[in-house]
C-alpha cells in the first residue's frame, strides 16, 4: 500500500509539472481552447497515465514498420468497399422493384376495401361480394410478382419482409372478412395462402402477419353488426358474437410476446364487448325473440 503511494506520488508531481506550461500556452491562444472545449464533454474514455517513461525512439520505429503496410491495405480496403457498394446497390434495386409491386397492391387493396364497405349499407347481396372477389385475382398476380423477385435472392424473404408486411396484413383481414361473409367460418392460414396463390416453400404467408390480419378483421365486426341490425337482420349479432367469442378463445391459446400482435389481440376484447352490447340491446327488446324460441325448441 505504502509502496504504491510512493510510486504514485512522483508520477502525480511530474504530470502536474507538465500541466503548468501547458496552461500557459493555452492562455496565449484562447481560440484553440474554445475549439477544444466542446470535445471534452463528449470524450468517453480517459487514457491511463503512462506507467513508465521510456524514450520514444523504439516505439516510433515499431510504428514506422507497420505504417508501410497500411498503404497496401488501403487498396484492398477500397476493393472491399467497392464490392459492398455493388452488393448494396443490387439489394436497393430489389427493394425498389418490391416497392413498386407493393404500390400496385395498395391500389387493389383500396378497391377491395371500398367494395367490401358496401356491406355496411344494406343486407349482404351477392353482387357486392362479387366485386370484392375480383380483386383477389389481382392480388394473386401481385403476390406472384413478389415471389418472382424474391426468387432471385433466396433466403432473404425476411430481409425485405417489412416492405409488404402491413399490406399483407390488410389483405388477410379483407380476405378473412369476405370469407366469413361467404361461409360463416374462419379463413385458415392454409386457405389464405391458397387464395393468394402463395407457396409456403418459397414465398409463404407469415403466420404472424396472418394473425394480425385476423385482428384487423375483428375490428371491422362491431360496425358490421350495428349496421346489420339497423338494416333489420336481428340474428346477426348472435352469429357474430359466437364467431368472435370462438376467435378470441382461440387467440388465447397463443403465447404472445410483447409485440404488435399482442397489442392487436388486446384490442380484440373491445370489439367483443361492443358486439355483446349490441346483442344485449337486440335481445332485451325481444327483437331476436323468434330466433331464441326456435333455439330453445331445438335444444329441448
Amino acid at each position: 500500500m505504502r509502496a504504491a503511494f510512493r510510486t504514485a506520488i512522483p508520477a502525480l508531481l511530474s504530470s502536474a509539472a507538465a500541466f503548468r506550461p501547458c496552461r500557459r500556452i493555452l492562455r496565449l491562444s484562447p481560440l484553440l481552447l474554445l475549439r477544444s472545449s466542446p470535445l471534452s464533454s463528449s470524450m468517453a474514455n480517459h487514457p491511463t497515465p503512462p506507467s513508465s517513461a521510456s524514450p520514444s525512439s523504439s516505439s516510433t520505429a515499431a510504428a514506422g514498420a507497420t505504417v508501410g503496410l497500411s498503404s497496401s491495405s488501403s487498396s484492398s480496403m477500397e476493393k472491399q468497399f467497392e464490392d459492398f457498394r455493388v452488393q448494396l446497390e443490387e439489394s436497393g434495386s430489389v427493394r425498389e422493384r418490391i416497392r413498386r409491386v407493393v404500390m400496385e397492391m395498395e391500389g387493389a387493396i383500396r378497391l377491395m376495401h371500398s367494395s367490401l364497405l358496401l356491406v355496411h349499407q344494406s343486407l349482404p347481396a351477392p353482387e357486392v361480394l362479387e366485386k370484392a372477389r375480383v380483386q383477389i385475382g389481382v392480388l394473386n398476380d401481385l403476390f406472384g410478382r413478389l415471389a418472382e423477385i424474391l426468387r432471385e435472392c433466396p433466403g432473404q424473404y425476411y430481409r425485405y419482409h417489412g416492405d409488404w408486411k402491413s399490406e399483407t396484413q390488410t389483405v388477410v383481414s379483407l380476405l378473412a372478412f369476405l370469407h366469413w361473409l361467404e361461409t360463416g367460418s374462419l379463413l385458415t392460414h392454409e386457405e389464405a395462402e391458397k387464395k393468394l396463390g402463395l407457396n409456403a416453400s418459397e414465398f409463404g404467408l407469415d403466420i404472424e402477419d396472418y394473425l394480425i390480419g385476423l385482428c384487423f378483421m375483428s375490428n371491422e365486426m362491431p360496425r358490421y353488426v350495428v349496421n346489420q341490425v339497423t338494416a333489420g337482420d336481428y340474428d346477426c349479432p348472435r352469429k357474430v358474437l359466437k364467431f368472435l367469442t370462438d376467435l378470441h378463445a382461440a387467440f388465447r391459446m397463443l403465447n404472445l410476446r410483447n409485440d404488435f400482435l399482442r397489442k392487436k389481440f388486446d384490442g380484440m376484447k373491445y370489439d367483443l364487448r361492443r358486439v355483446e352490447e349490441v346483442y344485449y340491446d337486440v335481445k332485451i327488446r325481444g327483437l331476436a325473440s323468434g330466433e331464441t324460441t326456435k333455439d330453445q325448441t331445438t335444444q329441448a
Partner: peptide, 21 residues
C-alpha cells in the same frame, strides 16, 4: 357449420401456437 368452425379453429390455432412457441 359453426360447430365445425369452432373445432377447426381450435385445431388451426394449435398449429399457430406451436409455430409461435
Amino acid at each position: 357449420r359453426t360447430m365445425a368452425t369452432d373445432s377447426t379453429m381450435k385445431q388451426e390455432f394449435t398449429k399457430y401456437a406451436d409455430y409461435l412457441n
